[in-house]
């Protein structure tokens, strides 16, 4: 474990907590893409499927973190699609999730480290996570604005994989560990946040709200 991966995981946890708090406190999921949250839930379930196969005692933090990610993302989807369904902005959350899931699944069958079920599920999860934020960014571009709390959520969510890139550089240099598929997908994922990061740094940090040119 290195500092980059530690802060990456903490940033990821923070993102999940910020979103849950926003929805729970405001009792509304306005401005939140339910599809992105569904895709994240699918990512966690397919990536941590080993938790369900051979259940190992929760002796280490990694198992606990995996369970937190899965339960928090499923609970977030429950809040969006059931509890606060009335506030779900379905009209603007209109990016076709199939256009992300099918290519990720196809690519996972073509480019993977080993052609076996668990490995392909893991690879699918990595590819899907890289593009899972697109419906959320699409929704913001449609509504033309993002609530400040949602911007903080996106910043934490984007920073997590950016920090993982530093972690991969660290591990390559000190442990000569390379996981090419995760690295390429992680770089693509972080690049998708670039324009949002620019808006966040230039606006939200100064207390302004992100309003996209309509």
């Amino acid at each position: 474990m290195n500092i980059f991966r530690l802060f990456g995981d903490l940033s990821h946890l923070a993102a999940i907590a910020i979103l849950l708090l926003k929805i729970w406190k405001t009792r509304s999921c306005a401005g939140v893409s339910g599809k992105t949250q569904l895709l994240f839930a699918v990512c966690f379930i397919t990536r941590y499927i080993d938790l369900f196969l051979h259940f190992v005692s929760l002796y280490n933090t990694e198992k606990v973190m995996k369970l937190i990610y899965i339960s928090a993302s499923v609970f977030t989807c429950y809040l969006i699609f059931f509890k606060f369904k009335a506030t779900y902005d379905g009209n603007h959350d209109s990016m076709r999730a199939e256009f992300l899931i099918v290519p990720a699944a196809g690519l996972a069958c073509l480019i993977n480290t080993k052609f076996d079920a668990i490995e392909i599920l893991w690879t699918f999860s990595i590819y899907l996570e890289a593009v899972a934020i697109l419906p959320q960014l699409f929704l913001i571009s449609k509504t033309g604005e993002a609530e400040t709390i949602t911007s903080h959520y996106l910043f934490a969510q984007g920073s997590y994989r950016a920090l993982y890139i530093l972690n991969w550089i660290y591990r390559y240099h000190y442990e000569s560990h390379v996981d090419t598929i995760a690295i390429v997908a992680g770089v693509v994922q972080t690049i998708l946040y670039c324009d949002f990061f620019y808006l966040y740094i230039t606006k939200v940090v100064k207390g302004q709200k992100i309003v996209l040119p309509a």
Partner: peptide
């Protein structure tokens, strides 16, 4: 062998 492919990251 078999599970040598360990993805040790979250």
């Amino acid at each position: 062998y078999g599970c040598d492919l360990v993805h040790d990251e979250l």
